[in-house]
Simulated scan of single mutants.
Amino acid sequence: MQIRFTKMQGAGNDFVVLDETQGRLGLTPAHYRYLADRHFGVGADQILTVRRPTADATAQGIDFEYVIHNADGGEVEQCGNGSRCFARYVRDKGLTDKDTIRVQTLSGVIAPRLTPDGRVTVDMGRPVLEPARVPFDTTGLQPVAQGSGQKWPLTLDLPAQPATVLVAVVSMGNPHAVQLVEDVDTAPVAIWGPLVERHVRFPQRVNAGFMQVVSRSHVRLRVFERGTGETLACGTGACAAVAAGIRLGLLDNEVHVDMRGGRLTIAWTGQDTDTLYMTGPATTVFEGQIDIPDHL
């Protein structure tokens, strides 16, 4: 089957965007894996699909449905950098003339807004910090209190001998485990990342974040993403890291997050009742058409 696509990126986190507003393409997990493959397909960290909302959702003011598949073909709840690209795509393609849209995701409703400087600000909702809702199994664990937050011990099964790291657990619609490191450049992301991602205490697996605090308004971050591996940037990972840092008393309410693909700005009051905002770039790289085998 032949499929038209748009390749986009947000701070180096890259996506294949598909338009299903006129009808479903009928893709399987194997098709999504093929599209994401950097040798045989287009190549992407995630596949983003644009759909029209249901009649009930439209009546509630929802403009679009946003579906996300990781490079391993699995559907996931949320993608922050992708949400900015989603907003840029629907506006550039003439699917909406609004500056702010309401978008239904698997985990809830988000509201991306195009700003005059070309960036996109997204209302990412309220960070979830209760371990059971992340979800994270705390059975038998004793948290370490810091500020108004807490860090949890996590034992990693390393080849030489087990090691215990402290993680702050946060959900931004998808699960994150954030650990503090002295230097992100030397952090063992490739080794510890997959061990955290698939740790038995995270029943839905988890995105593993490694955060270096430079100042109260500036952090550096690397993220080993669930189902994808390390990416150049992770929007929800940046949101989760800043939320954790604010609660741990390490960060102010507006923070610049530098990742290998670029900078995002995260703003949150630290209050449970307030939503968190993410601002960053969203860029179209190229458009094309690909012939995908019907049966994979």
Rank of each mutant, 00 (worst) to 15 (best):
V134G: 00
D137P: 06
D137L: 09
L141D: 02
L141V: 04
Q142K: 14
Q142P: 02
A145L: 13
A145W: 04
G147D: 05
S148N: 14
G149L: 11
G149V: 09
Q150I: 08
Q150T: 13
K151A: 11
P153F: 02
L154V: 02
L154M: 06
T155Q: 12
T155P: 00
L156I: 10
D157K: 13
D157T: 11
P159V: 07
A160M: 12
A160S: 14
Q161Y: 11
P162D: 14
A163I: 13
T164P: 06
T164L: 08
V165T: 03
L166D: 13
L166Q: 14
A168G: 10
V169I: 13
V170T: 03
M172Y: 08
G173T: 09
N174K: 06
P175S: 07
H176F: 10
A177Q: 05
V178P: 01
V178I: 14
V178Y: 01
V181W: 02
V181T: 08
V181Q: 04
D183C: 07
V184L: 05
V184A: 03
V184K: 02
D185A: 13
A187V: 08
A187Q: 05
P188H: 05
V189M: 03
V189Y: 01
V189Q: 01
V189T: 07
V189W: 01
V189N: 00
A190V: 09
I191W: 09
I191F: 09
I191C: 09
W192K: 08
W192D: 10
W192I: 07
V196L: 02
V196E: 01
E197V: 02
R198Y: 08
H199L: 01
H199N: 01
R201F: 04
F202V: 00
P203K: 07
Q204Y: 06
R205T: 15
V206T: 11
V206M: 05
V206W: 04
N207M: 10
G209Y: 02
G209T: 01
G209W: 00
F210Y: 03
M211V: 09
Q212A: 12
V213A: 04
V213S: 05
V214P: 01
V214W: 00
S215E: 10
R220M: 11
L221T: 05
L221D: 04
V223F: 04
E225R: 08
E225V: 07
R226I: 13
T228V: 15
E230M: 10
A233L: 11
C234Q: 06
G235D: 11
G235W: 10
G235C: 11
T236L: 11
G237L: 12
G237T: 12
A238V: 15
A238L: 15
C239N: 12
A241T: 14
A243F: 13
A244F: 10
A244C: 14
A244W: 05
A244T: 12
G245S: 11
G245R: 03
